[in-house]
Each structure stands twice: as C-alpha cells, then as structure tokens.
Amino acid sequence: MTTSQWQEINNQEDIENLMSLFGWFHDSCIKGLYMWTDHYVNKDLSMSISAKRDHRVRLLIQRQNTNPTAIELIFDELIQLYINPSPENYDSIIFGATFLHKDGLFYWADDNEWSPDKENKFAEVNWICSKKVKWRDANDWIGETLRYGPKEDKE
C-alpha cells in the first residue's frame, strides 16, 4: 500500500512542478481509474444522497521512468469525465499530457495538444475536469496488480 502524503494542487505553478517531476507524463499509461460518490442505498432501501458536487475520481498512472514511477491523482468535485478507450490494435501510451488550471477548474488530458477550448474536445482523448486535485507518489503500485478492485474472470 502506498504511504506517501497527499499533495494539494492549488494553481498552475503546482501543476508545472508535478508535470516536471513526472516528465510531462511521457511514456506513461493509465493503469486504473475509479469513480465514486457519497450516494448509497441503506439496508431499509432508503437512499442517501448529497446535494453537493460529490463525484470523485482516483487515477493511477504508471510510467517508464523513475522517481516517481507511478502517481495517484484524486479529482474531487468532478465536473466532467470523458473516457475514450483505444480502439483494437492501438496502444494506450501517453506521450505527453495536458494539465492546467483555468477559470477555477483543473483539467487533465492524456494528450499534450488537448485544450478545453477546442471545438472537438470530445474526440480521441481521455480527460477530466474538477474543482480540486491532489496527488501522491505511488511507486510501490507499479506492475500489473489492480489497485481499485479485483480482476474479473475474462472467460
């Protein structure tokens, strides 16, 4: 289990520091993604819901470099999550990422030419927008083990 302290990202300078530390996400991949809310159904089948923006996403990224080799990000108060899996016979290597703070929102995309202002922002790029972000070193989460749930039987 990773034990690194969470680092809040508050502004573009914090983003640039992480981007530099993690090599601008070059030669990396999304290993896992998990989304959850504060909503749930009680034992009596009543529903507990939140009126707040309560969606969160955990994202585990691994890369072919060291210090760190893997990081975990949490996107809190989620605004948008767009996932577009790679088609068959294509890889999912990230050659560079976009990570920016604009108008009070944080944007992360697995393409360094992506912009939230692009007309075709829902094209072939995975991206996340949230009001808050934090990250931590996850070096001990390298490899094929799934961290956000058990592997399902593929047969």
Rank of each mutant, 00 (worst) to 15 (best):
residue 24 W to G: 09
residue 24 W to R: 10
residue 28 S to V: 05
residue 29 C to W: 07
residue 29 C to Y: 13
residue 32 G to E: 10
residue 32 G to M: 06
residue 32 G to H: 02
residue 33 L to W: 03
residue 33 L to G: 04
residue 33 L to E: 01
residue 34 Y to A: 07
residue 34 Y to L: 13
residue 34 Y to I: 11
residue 36 W to N: 07
residue 36 W to T: 15
residue 36 W to C: 10
residue 37 T to Q: 01
residue 37 T to A: 04
residue 38 D to V: 14
residue 39 H to Y: 07
residue 40 Y to D: 13
residue 41 V to A: 02
residue 42 N to E: 10
residue 42 N to I: 06
residue 42 N to F: 08
residue 43 K to F: 12
residue 43 K to Q: 03
residue 44 D to M: 06
residue 47 M to C: 03
residue 47 M to W: 03
residue 50 S to D: 11
residue 50 S to A: 00
residue 50 S to E: 01
residue 50 S to F: 00
residue 51 A to H: 11
residue 51 A to V: 05
residue 51 A to I: 08
residue 52 K to R: 13
residue 53 R to V: 09
residue 54 D to W: 03
residue 54 D to K: 02
residue 55 H to P: 04
residue 56 R to S: 12
residue 56 R to E: 14
residue 56 R to D: 08
residue 58 R to A: 10
residue 58 R to N: 13
residue 58 R to T: 07
residue 59 L to P: 01
residue 59 L to T: 05
residue 60 L to A: 15
residue 61 I to Q: 00
residue 61 I to N: 02
residue 61 I to W: 02
residue 61 I to F: 13
residue 61 I to R: 03
residue 62 Q to I: 11
residue 62 Q to K: 08
residue 62 Q to E: 12
residue 63 R to Q: 15
residue 63 R to N: 12
residue 63 R to M: 13
residue 64 Q to I: 13
residue 64 Q to K: 05
residue 66 T to G: 07
residue 67 N to R: 08
residue 68 P to L: 01
residue 68 P to S: 02
residue 69 T to Y: 09
residue 69 T to H: 12
residue 70 A to Y: 00
residue 70 A to Q: 00
residue 70 A to P: 03
residue 71 I to Y: 01
residue 72 E to P: 00
residue 72 E to Y: 00
residue 73 L to A: 04
residue 73 L to E: 02
residue 73 L to R: 00
residue 75 F to G: 03
residue 76 D to K: 14
residue 76 D to T: 13
residue 77 E to N: 10
residue 80 Q to F: 05
residue 81 L to Q: 07
residue 82 Y to I: 04
residue 82 Y to H: 12
residue 83 I to V: 11
residue 83 I to N: 11
residue 83 I to H: 15
residue 84 N to G: 10
residue 85 P to L: 14
residue 85 P to E: 12
residue 86 S to K: 09
residue 86 S to N: 09
residue 86 S to C: 15
residue 87 P to Q: 03
residue 87 P to E: 07
residue 87 P to Y: 02
residue 87 P to G: 09
residue 88 E to G: 06
residue 89 N to T: 10
residue 89 N to L: 05
residue 89 N to E: 11
residue 89 N to Y: 14
residue 90 Y to T: 14
residue 91 D to V: 10
residue 92 S to K: 13
residue 93 I to K: 08
residue 93 I to H: 06
residue 94 I to M: 01
residue 94 I to K: 01
residue 95 F to Y: 14
residue 95 F to I: 07
residue 96 G to A: 14
residue 96 G to E: 04
residue 96 G to I: 01
residue 96 G to P: 05
residue 98 T to Y: 00
residue 98 T to E: 06
residue 99 F to C: 11
residue 99 F to W: 02
residue 100 L to C: 11
residue 101 H to A: 10
residue 101 H to E: 12
residue 102 K to Q: 14
residue 102 K to N: 10
residue 103 D to H: 11
residue 103 D to T: 03
residue 103 D to N: 13
residue 104 G to M: 05
residue 105 L to V: 04
residue 105 L to S: 15
residue 105 L to D: 06
residue 106 F to I: 09
residue 106 F to G: 02
residue 107 Y to L: 01
residue 107 Y to P: 05
residue 108 W to L: 03
